[in-house]
Design a protein around this nucleic acid. Structure first.
Lengths: 154, 154
DNA sequence: TATTGTTATACTCTATAACTATA
DNA sequence: TATAGTTATAGAGTATAACAATA
């Protein structure tokens, strides 16, 4: 009763050819990576949810409503987040050219700098770890990346 | 200016043999998986951080302090989380046999049930997706899982 | 009347500091 | 005096409801 099926993943797992076991192990591995990355890329300049908005605005200027949709957050929450970014000078508000109700949010140069620093620090962690691996392992990870992206997308 | 270095990962990436590119793509893939899993396994019975504690207690009874360490959370936060779990009847407090200062937290039968349901729902999502893949892909993912676990652990 | 965005208010999770009990 | 845990208090982030401005 106290040692159920799929939890004991930390130990070496001889029976990992089972699909369910792979699902559990793979999920755990991805979650650990995500957690580490989040931890390693923590930034004094901007919190994770703020960075996420900056990343989006780097792709294109957007309205608060669009950001709320994309980030799966309520409009008031996004207003609050955006306020913080505007106060710090990372984002600027401007009126929508044709629709007076809307607001256009744009990344400032300072915001772009913050993004660049954060991006560098975040990716450095993973890159350093990959650098230790032999080419054969890297190849496995390359193919796995494509598969994981597929799996996550559906 | 608005299309910097490492962001354009969503597009097909012909030059993905580059280590830095792999780092970015792999990170993104893991983050997407983690996000999806979190979304898919959301439970009315217990919030993510509560489930995380239940998972740990399923491995072995622990003290609040140990849980706070493992979960990288402050002791007061863990007290609060544990209180919620005790109130719901998922966890029971008992005195430490030799050290009167410590408290031993144990998963109750009800807690184990909650865990089981959550686990089933969470893993179902990933397992269903993996079931579609050919054996060769599964093999890649098996090897990648081991590598990712290694990478995340260091 | 519908939509976009903001303000008002409340709830949850988190943290630091102070306190109690035991070692 | 140091350690384990809790309580007190405050600070982020989020949500729903109500409101203002525009379409």
């Amino acid at each position: 009763m106290s040692t159920p099926t799929g939890t004991d993943v930390d130990q070496s797992d001889d029976q990992s050819d089972d699909l369910a076991h792979l699902a559990v192990d793979l999920r755990l591995a991805c979650q650990r990576i995500a957690r580490r990355v989040r931890y390693e890329s923590a930034s004094a300049e901007a919190a994770p949810h703020q960075l996420s908005v900056l990343y989006h605005l780097d792709k294109r200027p957007s309205s608060p409503g669009e950001l709320a949709d994309v980030e799966k957050v309520s409009p008031p929450s996004m207003t609050r987040t955006v306020n913080g970014l505007v106060e710090r000078g990372y984002v600027s508000r401007s009126p929508h050219p044709s629709d007076g109700r809307q607001v256009v949010l744009t990344l400032t140069d300072l915001g772009r700098q913050v993004l660049q620093v954060s991006r560098a620090r975040r990716d450095a962690w993973m890159a350093v770890r990959l650098a230790d691996l032999p080419e054969s392992d890297l190849d496995v990870l390359r193919r796995a990346t494509a598969l994981l992206t597929e799996v996550a997308g559906r």
